[in-house]
Design a protein around this nucleic acid. Structure first.
Lengths: 210, 210
DNA sequence: CCTACCGATCGGTAGG
DNA sequence: CCTACCGATCGGTAGG
């Protein structure tokens, strides 16, 4: 990764050169359009139109359309890997790690929604997409191992297959990208807890001992 | 809908004409390829290659690529609407309707996975896609109304927003298309019950009164 | 005469 | 502005 492609944007104060897009702001717009029309259906002409610059000007920032995809997918994956690493480093039981993972995944997803959305739609059509899918699978495997450990510890029900359970859990979490709007931050505060509640305690009301 | 576009394939016995694809078998292959590469990324050349016939031969069956999409989306939506209608016609409480809806949605999804998968990836890029999204939304609204009724009846927990809850429920259900394989029917028997268990009773083990 | 298909070719548009 | 390729169309052919 070169410095131009760094995840952390350079401060735009006291900058030299022509005002306009830097890689970071250009990428944000590109990801927005990719999510609207789909990556493959988006032409460089579509992007230039939305950006308000010439098609050729985009090639000043990136070598190809695919590089835009790679940079966007890297952001989502870097974030998810950081969340997973956070869960790994906790000194608690497997269920607690899992609760942390679910909760923080929701937070990250809401925070970097466009990038995560793009990642979740990747189908492996190119080497860039295949590499992203591989990084995703490593995260899935860790989640599945946590479910397995939590079942063994007697904290999660044993009548469901651990791998299936892990997939369903994160299927629910990931489905957030389909309908949450970055604008309506009203939900944002409550959602991580609501998702945890649904996943771990279910929807049904029942009498509980106390 | 003309007879050529009927959902139920005509029996292929005692037919006239050259042997080969009929609309039904051609559609099945097309949907497979659409799901692999994405609808927009799939060219008519891709399809013809996979079908083993000339590109122009596809136009003997359908007027355009978009018609293939429309036919496929109609199948998924017809099935989902039938499932919803089934839930409507039950003479039971809202929770029971909802349980039925979740269970049968999983069954349908596993049964017609390729068509449902394609539907779930539609983004509204064309009139055909927009029409499909509208039909989907009507189904979502009914599910949300069931959640609302079930909360009012005291059968579902009241601390979660009904619309959010409905979306999360079907987010989980719909995520099945991402990893279930039509081949591995081993899960297929258990999955509808497992999904219901997770959604309504959650993952956590706890002491229950009896 | 029907269905299923082929080769050749077009107007248009994509990425670069 | 170039090259490559797209979706679509047409005249014609062959099995049943």
């Amino acid at each position: 990764m070169t410095s131009r492609e760094a995840s952390v944007p350079m401060p735009r104060t006291a900058r030299r050169g022509r005002p306009g897009y830097d890689l970071d702001s250009l990428l944000a717009v590109a990801v927005e359009v990719f999510n609207e029309r789909g990556y493959d259906a988006t032409s460089m002409g579509d992007l230039s139109e939305r950006l308000g610059i010439a098609k050729s000007a985009i090639y000043h920032h990136v070598a190809s359309k695919e590089v835009l995809l790679r940079l966007a997918l890297d952001r989502a994956l870097d974030g998810l890997e950081a969340v997973t690493q956070g869960a790994r480093e906790l000194d608690v039981s497997a269920v607690r790690r899992l609760e942390h993972l679910v909760h923080e995944s929701v937070v990250l997803l809401l925070d970097h929604q466009p990038y995560v959305t793009l990642l979740l739609r990747v189908r492996g059509n190119s080497p860039v997409e295949l590499a992203a899918l591989q990084r995703r699978r490593a995260l899935d495997r860790y989640a599945a191992s946590l479910v397995r450990d939590a079942v063994r510890a007697g904290d999660l029900r044993a009548d469901l297959d651990p791998t299936v359970t892990a997939r369903l859990m994160f299927g629910l979490v990931n489905s957030l990208v389909e309908w949450t709007r970055p604008a309506s931050r009203a939900h944002t505060q409550a959602l991580p807890d609501e998702v945890s509640a649904l996943v771990f305690d279910g929807l049904r009301v029942r009498d509980r001992p106390r």
